[in-house]
Design a binder for these strands. Structure first.
Length: 202
DNA sequence: TATACGATCACCT
DNA sequence: GGTGATCGTATAC
């Protein structure tokens, strides 16, 4: 069991935190079994001015957790079907968040694969397809909205561990996905991924 | 109370 | 490359 992240890691602007979380390990403990994977893709949502961010509509019941301290989980339902996991970043009162978009499974891969048996054709999923997207990752790791507000630093069933350091030349930076409506913010370089890693989405 | 739509995914052509 | 599934949230009425 590796060292967990410290809360200060998450206390910066979300773009900094999104970059830092690459290479860290997301861990889910369920029925005594450890499910884990290296974070290989993230996106930053940088507060109320960010037209691509849920917080751009201000403080509501849904966005409330993002206004609190960093290191907590913001989980939301998208398209009526999938849950997505975010790490709250920045300081209290600044609603920043980092969307975890993909992980490279390391522990409990078979259980994660079976958790994704929502597919019709029932074909065996390739390893690279198990958690290569924000909705897929939550399904694979059994992360739902019950984790809204969960502490990812000191929590019990879901937390983040430190990983090997990642050099800048191994990081791909580009525009975020699925926010074409966000005007100038749609192009902002706020998506981060490990270059040439086959476990990233799309 | 009613309605439009989304930080996605899987299947189809 | 296109589209349907499916429901909570924000916003309009």
């Amino acid at each position: 069991m590796k060292k967990r992240i410290e809360r200060e890691i998450c206390a910066e602007s979300a773009d900094i935190v999104a970059r830092r979380l690459l290479g860290c390990t997301l861990v889910r403990l369920i029925d005594g079994e450890r499910l884990a994977g290296v974070i290989v893709e993230t996106e930053a949502y940088v507060g109320e001015n960010d037209l691509g961010a849920h917080a751009s509509r201000g403080r509501t019941a849904r966005t409330e957790v993002m206004y609190g301290p960093p290191g907590y989980a913001y989980v939301y339902l998208i398209y009526g079907m999938y849950d997505c996991l975010n790490v709250v970043a920045c300081e209290v009162g600044m609603p920043h968040a980092v969307l975890v978009r993909a992980i490279q499974p390391t522990d409990g891969m078979e259980r994660m694969r079976s958790n994704r048996k929502g597919t019709r054709t029932g074909k065996r999923l390739r390893d690279v397809d198990i958690a290569s997207g924000p909705g897929k990752l939550c399904a694979a790791m059994q992360i739902g909205r019950e984790f809204y507000g969960h502490d990812l630093v000191d929590g019990d069933e879901l937390w983040i561990e430190m990983g090997a350091s990642v050099s800048d030349r191994d990081v791909l930076v580009g525009p975020r996905i699925g926010i074409a409506y966000a005007k100038e913010w749609a192009h902002a370089p706020l998506r981060f991924a490990l270059r040439n890693n086959p476990y990233v989405s799309r």
